[in-house]
């Protein structure tokens, strides 16, 4: 066993401590704290998890356990335009796998990866509750319904120059 040092910018550290404090540093609020932290920082790197653990007085192993259990949480920075393909049952049977393959081919990204230039990232999610529009793709907060593989390039081009 040996201790190690992590580094975080002072402003980020203050922001994170304020987030924890807004939940009264209550260990029972871990998921809410992580949710808020991810919405601020975009992802949950090890440094952030260390600070959350310390502030809530729980082990960092537990924080990491929760982060890796819920697919919503990510330890990698997402792209400026995060693309999520719904692979829930309804979307899947309507061809979401083919849509996903096309996104992977065009963007040259695997699921869970972020492009080098930080513009796009690719992930899967399970059911956004819009099964009538299956297969569904989300880019950031924007939803695309009844997506076919040949529309993929057009969707990506919408973000050209942005």
């Amino acid at each position: 066993m040996s201790g190690y040092t992590i580094e975080l910018k002072k402003t980020d550290l203050d922001t994170l401590r304020d987030v924890c404090k807004s939940f009264n540093n209550d260990p029972g609020e871990l998921i809410n704290v992580l949710h808020k932290a991810q919405s601020i920082f975009g992802y949950l790197p090890a440094e952030i998890q260390e600070v959350v653990a310390k502030e809530l007085n729980i082990s960092v192993a537990k924080v990491y356990g929760v982060v890796t259990f819920y697919s919503f949480f990510t330890m990698k920075p997402k792209g400026k335009f995060p693309i999520s393909i719904c692979t829930g049952t309804a979307c899947y049977v309507r061809g979401a796998d083919k849509v996903l393959e096309e996104f992977k081919r065009v963007l040259k990204l695997e699921v869970g990866e972020t492009a080098q230039d930080g513009k796009f990232s690719l992930s899967c999610l399970r059911c956004v509750g819009a099964c009538g529009l299956a297969p569904v793709v989300m880019v950031g907060e924007k939803t695309y319904g009844r997506v076919s593989p040949d529309e993929v390039r057009k969707i990506i081009e919408e973000y050209d120059g942005l």
Partner: peptide, 12 residues
């Protein structure tokens, strides 16, 4: 000796 993880503040 301390073996605690240290959180180091970086200046912005």
């Amino acid at each position: 000796a301390s073996k605690q993880t240290v959180i180091h503040e970086k200046e912005d």
